[in-house]
Design a protein around this nucleic acid. Structure first.
Lengths: 253, 253
DNA sequence: CGCAGAGTTGATACCAGTCAACAAAAGTGG
DNA sequence: CCACTTTTGTTGACTGGTATCAACTCTGCG
């Protein structure tokens, strides 16, 4: 279809100025002239297919990436060959920072669905950031947000039981969808049960059971990957682990 | 404050140039003249006492910190009030990055022992980094290393059993001590069993049992917080979870 | 129609959390 | 310096949550 092609062309051409994620991404808070400079170095890549990788373990750091749509997982591969999902990346969230330390990627970024990606050559980004204080500032802020998400992820894994982790996962996902202006109470999970399990440090059966339990309790409605949050308050309560933290405080007081 | 400043002139005088951590810290790879500029903005604070905090939850980001000796933990406090240790910081490792995202600290940095700290005012660091490409580069590298340590930490928590986590913990600690030129096979744990438990997402009893087991198996010798690694190879093997990952690989080959 | 992939559900075993008692070390005050 | 308390660490017994193995359902697809 010619219309589809022209549409595609448009999206390749589409600049940061017209991007709906502008306020969340690197361009946030920088001026018009500076935005043009940033725009010049950003390359929009053709759509990335599901399971395609943005970079692989051991690849030298050449660029950082931001998805405009779709979703990615970053997977670390341990010496013994097991895969561990270290991150989940929605549109507007920076990827590739794992290579900042050694100049070489420590994990692989895998597309969970067909996605469009902006690629920012790292060398050039450094140069431009050095000249544009507001861009430098925003770069550090975006990096910081990424660190924050890592900490949130960590918090899901430590001493939390299965339903709690799942509740935290859904809660966090909803919040992130809300941030990018997408429906937060009804969405499609971007990943399989297996991926969720790896992300949460659980067995996939446990994830499945958890979803079922939450559904039975009327907290959510699940149909495959389609999720509806029916009782947001209860989900929050479960996520913050109220029920079995209270007793300890009660016995004290 | 005034008396504090006169209090330790000597440590205030000590500059990055003479610091033994120079090659690991922000000054790594930057020239003599640039080093002087960085040195100008770094403030050396009087010793921090055990359990004293560098910053607290909600504090605005004013500076980033590097310990010259001692050790710190960073603690996240969840809505329900439980504490989660998100990081362990040895000399030369940057602290305070948790505030980059929102401009406000998400966790608290607590001294595990009396420590000397360099404080780098963040605003000034940004300014100077924008003018010194090699410093900007090194700043990003140090941030990247911090992200890498967070990922290593994550790897300890996911689907690993107790002794495995403890082995990974000791292995990682040894490596980090080696990096800063300290004995890697015999050292004092900078933290209590309780802290280790929170760091590894285990109950403190489980940590204690794990140490005992490793000692019984001749892998380490424990005496309170004093640790000696007796069988480094075996520790590595345990850390990388060979024994119950092998079968899968064997059945393949 | 059969097949493969994804997801659900059941039965069982085991690791680790919890409660509890004890031991050792480190402060505290006379 | 010694008795006391407090903190820190160790060990035991028991229970429960979750991994594991396994059977089954459901969907889409060639």
């Amino acid at each position: 279809m010619t219309e589809a092609q022209t549409f595609d062309l448009a999206s390749i051409r589409s600049s940061c100025v017209h991007c709906s994620l502008r306020q969340l991404c690197l361009p946030a808070g920088i001026g018009a002239e500076e935005l043009r400079q940033l725009d010049d170095i950003v390359r929009r890549r053709r759509p990335i297919a599901q399971n395609e990788r943005l970079y692989r373990l051991g690849d030298p750091l050449t660029a950082v990436y931001v998805a405009r749509d779709g979703a990615f997982k970053t997977v670390a591969i341990s010496e013994s060959g097991e895969e561990q999902i270290v991150g989940l990346h929605l549109p507007g969230e920076l990827m590739g920072l794992d290579a900042l330390g050694a100049g070489v990627h420590r994990c692989e970024a895998v597309a969970l669905a067909t996605a469009n990606v902006c690629e920012v050559p790292f060398e050039r980004l450094s140069e431009v950031a050095a000249q544009l204080p507001s861009l430098q500032q925003q770069l550090l802020r975006v990096i910081g947000q990424s660190v924050g998400r890592d900490h949130d992820h960590l918090g899901m894994l430590v001493r939390r039981q299965a339903v709690e982790r799942i509740a935290l996962f859904l809660h966090g996902l909803a919040e992130r969808y809300r941030n990018i202006g997408q429906p937060a109470l009804e969405f499609r999970l971007p990943m399989s049960r297996d991926d969720i399990a790896h992300y949460l440090g659980l067995a996939l059966e446990t994830v499945s059971r958890g979803f079922s339990k939450l559904q039975d309790d009327g907290v959510i409605a699940v149909l495959g990957r389609q999720i509806e949050i029916r009782d947001s308050a209860e989900l929050d309560r479960l996520a913050h682990g109220v029920e079995h933290e209270e007793p300890r405080n009660r016995s004290r007081a």
